[in-house]
Amino acid sequence: MSIKSKQILTDYSVSKEKFELVYNDAFEMYETKFTSFDKLDSYYQSADYISHTDGTRNWFEKVYQLVKNYTIKSKWNLIKKQTNKQYLKVLDIGCGTGDFLKYGIDTFSVQGVGVEPNTTARNLTQNKNVTVKKSIKEINNDLFDVITLWHVLEHVTDLNEYFTFFKNHLKEDGILVIAVPNYKSYDAKYYKQYWAAWDVPRHLWHFSKKSLKKIGIQHQFKLMHIKPMYFDSFYVSLLSEKYKSNSKNVLKAFFIGFVSNLYGFFKNEYSSHIYILKK
């Protein structure tokens, strides 16, 4: 996929509306041009927006939940390797239905707090006895050992606001963990305008590896590690096949997902990456 200064993409998931993406050369990322932020919530109102539910209505959702449970364990293993503290205070922004925090609280006795603007997902989190706030503005002056955003940063309306929040709410030896899609991956190149991780207008920002490094430097964060998310290429390819041909084409999607991970192994450009940053 060549870098284009502008792209016009369709919201295949909810509205079927078209949105413009503009390339920011300085930060090597795309921005979705969207100004009606008061209407943004309406673009999340879909039963198919799976991260806001604990749904197991069909095989796709059942597999999603199984993979989610597996990756939650791997995420906590990654975090525990990055810090030698026995007890952690963790803030998970965009916590969805709270399963990541619930596992950390039950398994590692972390002090966990979530932030989730979606009412349905927030209620599910509260039902799991996990403390959850509606927005970062409700966090007050608390400091955390770890702040996580699992496929959330691409959704926020103001990157500078969030990175200022990270700087003000992380302890001096704290870590920031961000997972976002990578538009330089093979699955992005293959599916082009049908690539599900464009997900306009819900995804307002579209990052490369250099994007996160440059944004981090701008806000006095140092990028320490980048880790691949191997399962994302399969999930994204399944959705992309649906958008492209109105069918999930499971075998083809899994083949593209496999090729994307193979491409990532040689080119170091996976479907999604986890970024570990420190102040």
Score class of each variant (00 low, 15 high):
146 V>H: 01
137 K>N: 14
76 W>R: 10
1 M>H: 14
64 Y>F: 11
38 D>H: 13
250 V>K: 07
209 K>W: 04
178 I>T: 05
170 L>C: 06
217 I>H: 06
15 S>F: 05
83 T>K: 12
106 D>L: 03
173 D>S: 14
190 Y>P: 08
44 Y>F: 11
278 K>M: 07
58 N>W: 02
164 T>M: 06
91 L>H: 04
15 S>R: 03
198 W>I: 09
103 Y>F: 15
180 V>C: 13
276 I>M: 01
129 N>L: 01
234 F>P: 05
83 T>E: 00
138 E>H: 06
244 K>T: 03
121 A>P: 05
15 S>E: 05
33 K>W: 06
90 V>E: 06
76 W>P: 04
233 S>T: 07
64 Y>L: 02
152 V>A: 11
15 S>N: 02
147 I>P: 11
146 V>N: 04
134 K>R: 10
57 R>Q: 14
139 I>P: 05
108 F>D: 13
181 P>K: 07
37 F>E: 07
81 K>L: 12
17 E>H: 13
179 A>E: 09
39 K>T: 08
223 L>H: 08
106 D>T: 02
202 R>D: 02
94 G>V: 04
86 Q>H: 03
100 F>A: 03
183 Y>G: 05
198 W>P: 10
141 N>A: 13
150 W>A: 03
186 Y>M: 12
224 M>P: 00
78 L>C: 09
107 T>W: 00
120 T>G: 10
261 N>Q: 11
23 Y>W: 11
197 A>H: 12
227 K>H: 15
235 Y>F: 14
38 D>S: 14
5 S>E: 13
201 P>Q: 13
189 K>M: 07
196 A>Q: 10
31 E>P: 06
125 T>G: 01
276 I>W: 01
259 V>F: 10
243 Y>F: 15
120 T>P: 01
165 F>Y: 14
229 M>H: 01
162 Y>A: 00
69 N>C: 04
52 H>W: 03
95 C>D: 08
128 K>Y: 01
161 E>K: 12
3 I>K: 13
115 V>M: 07
49 Y>M: 07
31 E>C: 12
108 F>A: 09
184 K>I: 02
138 E>N: 10
1 M>Q: 12
63 V>D: 03
256 I>C: 00
1 M>R: 14
138 E>K: 03
211 S>F: 01
232 D>F: 08
94 G>E: 02
180 V>L: 11
1 M>D: 11
50 I>W: 04
266 F>R: 09
240 S>H: 06
15 S>L: 08
221 F>T: 08
177 V>T: 12
